[in-house]
């Protein structure tokens, strides 16, 4: 049988709760309700799920979705080998069998005909038909499905079907409030709070520009990058330009404004 232990989160991940999401998630899990986490990129969605898996002491299987993914990539397929064919479970099937939390990251990236395979797992049936193998799996009682997506990709071509959306309970994440975000930077990168506060301020300048030529502001993840660079000895202004500004925009006016914000924030 599959080694359960390899999917466990052994070390407590650092996760700073933004509100009562931990308790709410526990409630959803105890009823085995499917969960969707929405939010802009790099705001802590994956970290939250990892933390919950640790806290609930359940295995976690993460799948990063992409456009080329087919249903077989989730469910499993027959492989040819010297002795003929052999069935190999896909990550979703494995999770259903062993009772893991299956986290489909960036589900909107997958094609819609792929997404529908999760439907039977998400209602009262809690089953997964393996059509090719002619098997119907009843999900393990510990199994739970979690998907994440970023509604900020401003394209209606990348949106979930209503019939998919309406099978999930949902958490809406956003970047943490300033003080909390500074605390996260401090913990993650080991920098002092004053510096973290300054970084967060620059993040907020960019977030204010959302819709004015920026599709997304600066993520917590990028702020952690900047903090890490500074911690490693890079000068603050250079680290900010490199980790916060250059990655998010090619628009000269916005770049100039953010560079100025850096100059105005660090003396």
């Amino acid at each position: 049988m599959t080694n359960l232990d390899q999917y466990k989160v052994h070390q407590q991940p650092f996760y700073q709760a933004q509100g009562d999401e931990v308790a709410l998630y526990e409630a959803a899990y105890s009823a085995r309700l499917p969960v969707m986490v929405k939010g802009p990129t790099g705001c802590g969605k994956s970290r939250f799920i990892e933390y919950m898996a640790w806290k609930l002491n359940k295995p976690l299987i993460t799948v990063a979705c992409n456009e080329d993914m087919t249903a077989s990539d989730l469910v499993g397929r027959y492989l040819l080998d010297a002795n003929g064919t052999r069935w190999l479970d896909g990550p979703l099937t494995t999770a259903a069998r062993i009772g893991a939390i299956c986290y489909l990251d960036e589900i909107v990236e997958a094609r819609q005909d792929t997404t529908v395979v999760i439907h039977p797992l998400t209602d009262h049936r809690r089953t997964l038909p393996l059509d090719k193998k002619g098997e119907l799996i009843a999900a393990h009682p510990d199994f739970q499905l979690v998907i994440s997506y970023n509604p900020g990709y401003q394209s209606l071509m990348k949106d979930l079907k209503q019939s998919t959306k309406q099978r999930f309970t949902a958490f809406e994440f956003d970047y943490p409030a300033a003080e909390m975000e500074a605390g996260i930077l401090g913990k993650e990168a080991g920098i002092e709070l004053g510096l973290a506060t300054q970084l967060v301020k620059i993040g907020q300048v960019a977030r204010n520009l959302k819709g004015h030529g920026l599709d997304e502001g600066i993520s917590t993840r990028l702020l952690v990058y900047a903090a890490t660079l500074i911690k490693g000895g890079v000068a603050a202004k250079a680290a900010c330009r490199m980790a916060l500004v250059r990655p998010i925009t090619d628009d000269a006016d916005i770049r100039d404004t953010l560079d100025h914000a850096i100059d105005a924030t660090f003396v």
Partner: peptide
């Protein structure tokens, strides 16, 4: 103008 507009929005909301 755009640059200054961004300045006002970004740094001062």
């Amino acid at each position: 103008e755009r640059k200054l507009d961004l300045y006002m929005h970004g740094l001062w909301q």
